[in-house]
Amino acid sequence: MIFDKKVVRAEFISRPNRFQAYVNMNNSELMIHVPNTGRCREILVPGTTVILREENSPKRKTRYDLIAGYKGSRLINIDSQIPNKVVAEALICKKINYFKKYTKIEREKTFGNSRFDFKLCDEEGNECYLEVKGVTLEENGVSMFPDAPTERGRKHLLELVNVRNTGLDAAVLFLIQMKEVKYFTPYDKMDKEFGKALRYAWQNNVKIFAYDCNVGENFITLKDQVSVKL
């Protein structure tokens, strides 16, 4: 997907809370919005080059959203709204082999006590619930999730097991918001319970996928399937 709004570069200064940050643009300090509640500490380092998307709504307190940052030469998208949009585009364009058979794509559908990102149906009425998790954490070429404890993420995995137990298909897709990583693995050091839940889901036949992305300053698209190490 190509962003239809203006994007600009700036220099990151600080992030006083989850939703706000300060950047230097044209020698002026600006407060901007951060559309990601994760820590992103290895990306949002003082002095790094970040990418801002211009938002012109009169209801906003800030003019820009911080959507990406450079970690060395690697550009990493951190917009938490992006993964579902990228996956939706990929599903429509039949870019993910496992889901090619599903012809009906619905967003934000509820099963049990959870709302999942996608409900997919094929022409015979078979259903699949799909949850998408955006991945921004990378160390030495290894991508990991989560970068902050996530009880909600753990509950999603357990609910996907319940989906499977009813005979329906269930899957989780980790969208790695950068390119050229070695593999994906759960970040047990940050949240061991999420890692346990992911392995439990896999043992109960929930499908687990990871894909990286081609990322530019004004675009992001699904790229290649990445191996998952549990």
Rank of each mutant, 00 (worst) to 15 (best):
R199Q: 11
E29M: 06
P58S: 03
I220N: 00
N17P: 09
M144E: 05
A197T: 08
D79A: 11
E131W: 13
M190N: 06
T136I: 08
M1W: 07
Y70E: 04
F99G: 11
A88L: 12
T185Y: 11
Y183Q: 02
E106A: 15
V142H: 03
I105T: 05
Y98L: 15
A171E: 00
K101P: 04
T150R: 14
L66C: 03
D169N: 15
D147A: 14
F3C: 01
I220F: 00
N140T: 06
D224T: 05
I208E: 04
A210W: 01
Y22A: 09
D188L: 09
S114A: 14
K207T: 15
E193D: 14
F118Q: 12
K133F: 13
K85W: 08
I67T: 07
T221L: 10
N24S: 09
P83I: 11
V23K: 02
N165Y: 09
E127R: 12
R41D: 15
Q81M: 04
G134E: 02
K61H: 07
N97C: 10
Y129L: 10
M190D: 03
K133I: 12
S143R: 00
K182C: 08
F3Q: 02
D122K: 05
Q177A: 04
G195L: 12
A68Y: 01
Q20S: 12
I82F: 14
E131V: 15
E159G: 13
R115D: 08
F19R: 13
D65F: 03
I67W: 05
N84K: 14
Y211A: 00
A68R: 01
R115H: 05
V228Y: 10
I176Q: 00
K133G: 11
Q81K: 03
I220Y: 04
I96A: 13
D224N: 15
P83Q: 02
N162W: 01
I96R: 01
L137M: 10
P146G: 14
P35R: 02
A68I: 07
I76N: 00
A90P: 11
R115S: 15
A90V: 09
M31E: 08
E138H: 02
P35W: 02
G167V: 13
S80E: 13
L222C: 11
N204V: 12
C121L: 14
R39F: 09
L130C: 11
I76C: 01
F3W: 07
I105C: 06
S57Y: 03
